[in-house]
Design a protein around this nucleic acid. Structure first.
Length: 460
RNA sequence: GGCGACGUAGCCAAGUGGUUAAGGCAGGGGUCUGCAAAACCCCUAUCGGCGGUUCGAAUCCGCCCGUCGCCUCCA
């Protein structure tokens, strides 16, 4: 399969020495509930993992939590809680929400604060090797010593030095240098180190953790496109300097960012949609379908209208996968062609839009074949398999959140059947219309009336 | 200012040299149905603009217009 590598700027053949794949994904900083951009990132890499596993790879998925940083400290102080408490609460919520979105849990979720020894030892080694220097308890990485610095983000030293916004800090030897260790300021949590009390800089944790948990090497290192610079660039610099080997990670994958009204989601602009908000409004399969409807490297614009459209699309797939009760006597539908198209699309840098097209084509073919009394059960099994690779759960249709309405709906369906038998259509239609308004759809067929709950349309 | 990405039907979105330009949603017309719903069938784009390369371009090159991201914490 081919995979786009940010490092080379093109698609490369993805191969591994054995069947094992080490995948490190930069996770969230849990200073607030997650927004749907985080959800999109998580879904993207969940699909990467699921597909690699489908291809037979044994994937080890590591995803970190940056549980101490300026924003966490600020937010904890504002809320009058410790940084641990704040991080803990947001991490728990993240896990709950990702479970709801059918995101498989990573194998390890290391946290900066529980990896201090590994971090300190790495910084110490960098200092010994001359890649880092200590200024009054702050330790910086010496960017000038890493001759190929900028190779991931394609930035030259000139770009960085003469760019408009390089931070001016007298303590640094070079404005491009970045902090590996930050000395403690009043009121901040801190850990002991050879340089005094302090905490890790932002980038070092990911280097330390990925090396510790993926000692065989990082095959895929992922994250949002906004992490390319400086975060991942700096990770490469410090990791390769430390180990004296490269590449630090073989494939760099970056997902496009989700924006709202053409602007990137950002706390400071105030245009954040939280995951919990989205989940209260849309079904998990519809959200996943929305995220996967465009290629992962493309930016995506949040749109209530578009996500709602995915609810209908999910129903289309669900209907195609639903059991048929007619007798099959017209041969069997072969779905292998659709499966091949799906695999071919996914093999091409995870082209989920094309993979989805194969799923919809197969859905139509199943419906068409069923009308011709063909046996579609095997094809439906394939459909379920493909949908499952994308983590889209069609087995659990939406339910009424207000409790179990089934007995009451069934009572009304029975009464309506009697009315229809008596040709009292006005009253029968009234029951159906009223149920529709309340989110229950009735479908009459030769074999009786089916009903299902359907999340009501939302405005937008 | 520097680096990068993008601009395809009403909306979303594939396609990156040659096919009738995928798929989803929405819309129109049919079939089925007591009427619906679901499903099926049919219909709805010449690819931001201009120029160039080529037998041939949405697909390559140049310029222009527009949008976005990064360059600072950020999935």
């Amino acid at each position: 399969m081919k995979l786009y590598n940010t490092l080379s700027g093109r698609k490369e053949e993805f191969t591994t020495a054995d069947n094992a794949v080490g995948m490190y994904v930069c996770g969230i900083t849990p200073y607030a509930p997650s927004h749907i951009g985080h959800a999109m990132m998580s879904v993207v890499f969940d699909v990467v993992r699921r597909y690699l596993e489908f291809k037979g790879y044994a994937v080890k998925h590591i995803q970190n939590f940056t549980d101490v940083d300026d924003k966490i400290i600020t937010a904890a102080n504002e809320n009058g809680v410790s940084t641990e408490e704040l991080a803990e609460a947001n991490i728990a919520q993240y896990h709950d929400e990702m479970d709801t979105l059918n995101v498989l849990r990573a194998h390890v979720y290391p946290r900066a604060t529980t990896e201090i020894p590994a971090i300190v030892s790495m910084i110490a080694s960098l200092e010994e090797q001359g890649y880092a220097y200590n200024v009054n308890g702050d330790v910086y990485f010496r960017v000038g010593r890493k001759e190929d610095y900028g190779k991931l983000s394609r930035r030259s030293a000139e770009d960085l030095l003469y760019g408009a916004r390089v931070e001016v800090d007298e303590a640094k030897e070079d404005p491009r240098d970045f902090a590996l260790w930050k000395s403690q300021k009043p009121g901040e949590p801190a850990w002991d180190s050879p340089w005094g009390a302090g905490r890790p800089g932002w980038h070092i944790e990911c280097s330390a953790m990925s090396m510790r948990y993926l000692p065989e090497g990082v095959d895929i290192h992922g994250g949002g496109q906004d992490l390319i610079f400086p975060h991942h660039e700096n990770e490469i610099a410090q990791s390769e300097s430390y180990s004296q080997t490269q590449p630090f990670a073989r494939f760099w994958m970056h997902n496009g960012l989700l924006s709202i009204n053409e602007d990137k989601m950002s706390k400071s602009i105030g245009n954040v949609i939280t995951v919990s908000e989205a989940l209260s409004r849309f079904s998990p399969p519809a959200l996943r379908l929305f995220f996967l409807s465009s290629h992962y490297r493309s930016p995506l614009v949040y749109s209530v209208q578009n996500i709602n459209a995915q609810e209908r699309a999910i129903e289309r797939i669900r209907n195609a996968a639903a059991p048929r009760n007619g007798s099959a006597n017209g041969g069997m539908l072969d779905a292998s062609e659709y499966r091949s198209v799906f695999v071919e699309a996914m093999d091409d840098d995870f082209s989920t839009p094309r993979a989805l097209a194969a799923i919809f084509d197969l859905s139509r073919e199943i419906n068409r074949a069923a009308e011709q009394s063909k046996d579609v059960s095997a094809a439906q099994q394939t459909l379920r398999e493909l949908v499952d690779i994308l983590g889209i759960d069609i087995e659990h249709p939406p339910e009424d959140s207000d409790g179990d309405i089934a007995p009451f709906v069934e009572l009304l369906v029975d009464i309506r059947a009697e009315l229809r038998a008596a040709r009292q259509f006005a009253l029968a239609d009234k029951i159906r219309d009223e149920l529709t308004e309340r989110g229950v759809t009735l479908e009459d067929s030769n074999s009786g009336t089916e009903w299902r709950y359907r999340a009501p349309h939302q405005g937008g």
